[in-house]
Design a binder for these strands. Sequence first.
DNA 1: GGTGAAAGGGAGTAGAA
DNA 2: TTCTACTCCCTTTCACC
Lengths: 157, 157
Amino acid sequence: MEYKLDEIDLKILRMMQDNARINNAELARELGMAPSAVLERVKKLEQKEVLLAYYAKINPIALNQKMLSFIFIKVDEIIGDERTGRLLAEIPEVLEVHDIAGDDGYLIKVRTQDSLALVHLMRNSLSKIDGVISTRTIIVLQTVKEDNKIIVPVSLD
Amino acid sequence: MEYKLDEIDLKILRMMQDNARINNAELARELGMAPSAVLERVKKLEQKEVLLAYYAKINPIALNQKMLSFIFIKVDEIIGDERTGRLLAEIPEVLEVHDIAGDDGYLIKVRTQDSLALVHLMRNSLSKIDGVISTRTIIVLQTVKEDNKIIVPVSLD
DNA sequence: GGTGAAAGGGAGTAGAA
DNA sequence: TTCTACTCCCTTTCACC
């Protein structure tokens, strides 16, 4: 999984992160390279799992997903058992599942239509998962930023 | 911002969310339509802000961003003042900023190289923001899921 | 690693239904 | 909104450096 990235790779990553649908010819122009060389690099970045996926960000409102919440889930399981996390990840409304330090738990990010759908999810999905002891829900009123773009340095030295 | 989506639009959204780099001809083949008609629809979905952006998901480990955390930020500000949220959003390590219900605060998602960089960020960026009263940090040990794909229904009725 | 040529296919526009 | 037809440009491969 270790893979040496040079400045050109980092530029590619930066452009791809900003607009995954940029075409190869445009990338090549920005880099001052032949399209074939750039294509090679992109393929290698995918193959080496540096570029993991290309997502379209859909406006949740357009699909009636008006409610966003984070839920802390306390779990009764031996450390190292990852079953609960996998079960949580299978719920379609659950966008993120993080194993967190502290009191044996998970933090999940959930998008639902409304508060009713959230309650329904908690009653019918979450609480049915073996090992879930308790939950604490954080309601999001408004999202200011949600692009998940990580920092791409100028060089890695 | 209201825009009627039909089943074809929803299929496009589903395919785009799964792979933003799918090409228009492939979309058209899957839909059994002419490429020009599909292109029209995609353009309209972008224009109507249903499709908001196309992101490449980069492996954070490849860029030495080994640490993920969530931080609750308690803020002393009148309700409706959004300055603090905007300032938080400007910090490059901050991937998400959510205005949360309850005790006048924000929940932010932060990716840094390591715990030192996190402490540095908290000392030099967070605590320098006007109105920040206190913070509570949640350390992520392991991320099980992080695709942020929302549910695209079969129809919207 | 990189370039450049060549073939084949896709992107995008126009006009008609 | 869709299709067909058309042009132009891009993608992709391959030989070579």
